[in-house]
Design a protein around this nucleic acid. Structure first.
Length: 298
DNA sequence: CGTAACGTAGTG
DNA sequence: CACTACGTTACG
């Protein structure tokens, strides 16, 4: 439960009261049961040939300084960093990262990675690494290792933000398959991008069991439980789905599973990049740059 | 059986 | 396309 992160939505002022009925955990037991081939901790702890992922996930001052949600009386979006989650998925961060990487700014070669992690470590001991080293099993599945974990995971993924260029990016393993993340040139190939990782994650929405054996095809898919939205704990209580819950029967927009957003069998569904054209949005890039600049400046 | 949430159709 | 509403499914 402590791994359960609380991604405050674009602004979820009263998330505390978010529907007592809504499970305040990232996954329902049934979801957890849906058995990914790997747990999050697996992705973190799995040694990657080219890059030390653990090195990338060191917390940094930037994260430490993350302003606590101002319990503003104004329920509307505050211009604080949670704005990054304005997108229901928050995936535009990954998008931005991808764009930056394409621009050669985020070359994840072992060397650069080392530097990156070095910079990140500068102020924070490798407690996260230590925690991970203790055993991927310990914390991945339910495991909360402690309060500190909660602090660091506030973004919604166990390994969420990397101190790239002074900006933080979601580093959820689930994001990679979802966003078509690929560290170019074969510099980096995380376990998440491995065949099993991808297939497992992508196919998750269609667990054969829940599909009833691919019968009519109108079987309900299940939340992947791994994506950023899935890992959100609270309903925003502001989106149309939340406001309209009684009649709409819809989950909070910001908790809507990325996998379920994709049309099954639709174009690009298989490509993991569907609905998420990495070449399109200036907004996300701008956002990333903005943040990056801000971090560099400040 | 109640509730949560997915699928989908209707509407603007 | 976003919103809304309803049918349906899944689960406790």
């Amino acid at each position: 439960m402590s791994t359960a992160v609380d991604i405050a939505g674009p602004s979820s002022p009263d998330q505390a009261h978010s529907s007592a009925k809504i499970p305040n955990e990232p996954l329902r037991p049934s979801l957890k049961r849906s058995s990914h081939p790997y747990t999050l901790s697996h992705y973190i702890s799995t040694p990657s040939p080219a890059v030390d992922v653990k090195g990338l996930i060191q917390p940094s001052p930037a994260q430490e300084q993350r302003p606590a949600q101002p319990s503003n009386s104004k329920p509307r979006r505050a211009p604080s960093w949670p704005d990054m989650w304005e997108s229901p998925s928050g995936l535009h961060l990954a998008h931005a990262a991808e764009l930056l990487m394409r621009a050669g700014l985020l070359a994840l070669t072992p060397a650069t990675t080392e530097q990156a992690s070095l910079g990140a470590q500068s102020s924070q001991p490798a407690k996260k690494e230590a925690a991970e080293a203790k055993g991927g099993k310990g914390d991945g599945e339910g495991g909360g290792s402690g309060p500190e974990e909660e602090e660091e995971d506030s973004s919604g993924c166990s390994t969420d933000f990397q101190p790239f260029l002074g900006a933080w990016f979601p580093f959820s393993p689930a994001l990679f398959p979802l966003t078509g993340f690929q560290m170019g040139g074969g510099h980096w190939r995380s376990a998440a991008v491995g065949a099993e990782g991808i297939e497992g994650l992508v196919a998750e929405g269609y667990s054969p069991g829940s599909l009833g054996g691919g019968g009519g095809g109108r079987r309900k898919r299940k939340r992947c439980g791994e994506c950023v939205p899935c890992r959100r704990q609270t309903n925003c209580e502001q989106c149309s789905s939340c406001r309209n819950r009684k009649r709409g029967h819809q989950i909070c927009k910001y908790r809507k599973c990325e996998e379920l957003k994709r049309k099954p069998g639709g174009p690009g569904f298989d490509s993991r990049v569907s609905g998420f054209d990495l070449r399109g949005s200036d907004f996300t890039l701008g956002l990333a740059q903005e943040r990056s600049n801000g971090a560099l400046d400040g």
